[in-house]
Simulated assay, not measured.
Amino acid sequence: MHAVSSRRSRHTTRISAVLAAAALGVAGYTAIGSPAASAENPYERGPAPTEASIEATRGAYATSSRTVSSWVSGFGGGTIYYPTTTSDGTFGAVAISPGYTATQSSISWLGPRLASQGFVVITIDTDSRYDQPASRGDQLLAALDYVVASNDIGPRVDRNRLAVMGHSMGGGGALEAAKDRPALQAIVPLTAWNTDKTWGDVSVPALVVGAENDDVASVTSHSEPFYTTLAGEKMYLELDGASHFAPNSPNTTIAKYSISWLKRFVDDDVRYDQFLCPLPDDSTLSESRGTCPMS
């Protein structure tokens, strides 16, 4: 089932089963701040979500970080952000690539923000600032493999719950990574750029974020055709009045829906369906479309 929500056309359908499932997820928590997983879903991490919690600059988990040397094989180094607790079991992992000519500093704000919600996150530098999307896709996967195999962080990660994100050519790289590794649980291309416009062979759940005033990777030639051709669960959000570089600084809209998407598909956490379906009716968005998860 596809739905579209925009200032030009809004069509939303509330799914009562989603709310019931979310209620069951909440019931698995004895108190806010007690992040033990529910019996129904062993992958739930963190307290029951609210609008305020997904918009907050930090989630329930204290985090730490460590640097990955640029001499590492397969990508250009980076930074790993992770929850400090070892009492909640393993976490899903997310690799994030910057865009053309950019370094990890351009997307570094996402590292602690996502990690504090219960993910292990690696923001990467690429081998060259000029690497194209296919290379960035390979490097995202290499970064995930590095995290999983590392002696210190690897034991905190569930190797079966992995995702990738990226900005601009890094977002195009996220699409390439999903094509190369269908076992990924989620992808989030942010104002993505890629010469390939058709992704019918990609069924990994995808949150595609475009920007209304993007003059580098216009939504009509990039994000919209990417979204339209993707084969799996998917959502398209268009940032109202935003430029191509909106993902390069802290952005509540990008964060709240990225958190919700990753929680829903990496952690199978239906408590986050409420933020995805019905489609967001958000003043910061000029348009939203989606299959509505599990509708």
Rank of each mutant, 00 (worst) to 15 (best):
N151L: 10
P133Y: 06
E44V: 14
T291L: 14
G290S: 06
L24T: 12
G76W: 04
E55W: 00
N160W: 00
R264H: 13
T30V: 11
S97N: 06
T79P: 01
A177R: 07
A36T: 11
N248Q: 14
R14I: 11
K256P: 02
P133T: 08
M1L: 12
G92A: 09
R161W: 08
S73F: 01
S97G: 06
A48R: 03
G137D: 02
P205I: 05
V157A: 04
S203T: 12
A183S: 15
T220K: 07
P42H: 11
T191I: 10
D282C: 05
T90Y: 03
N251S: 06
S286V: 00
V26C: 11
D196K: 15
T229C: 03
T123Q: 01
A177Q: 04
L114S: 02
T191M: 15
A174Y: 07
L262W: 03
Y272L: 04
D138M: 03
E40A: 13
S69V: 09
G154D: 07
L162S: 07
S168R: 04
G290Q: 03
A37K: 06
S150Q: 13
G92S: 03
G89C: 01
D240C: 02
L110F: 14
W199C: 01
S135G: 00
E224D: 12
E55Q: 15
Y227P: 09
A20T: 12
W193A: 03
T57Q: 12
S135Q: 13
V219P: 15
T126R: 12
S97A: 15
V18Q: 08
A192I: 10
L19R: 13
Q104W: 07
A37N: 02
A255Y: 04
V270H: 11
S69E: 11
S16A: 10
N41Y: 00
S286E: 06
H2N: 13
P133W: 05
N194Y: 11
P293I: 01
G166V: 09
P280R: 09
P49V: 04
D127M: 14
S260A: 15
V148R: 02
G172W: 11
S243M: 06
D214C: 01
R129Q: 03
A17P: 04
A56W: 08
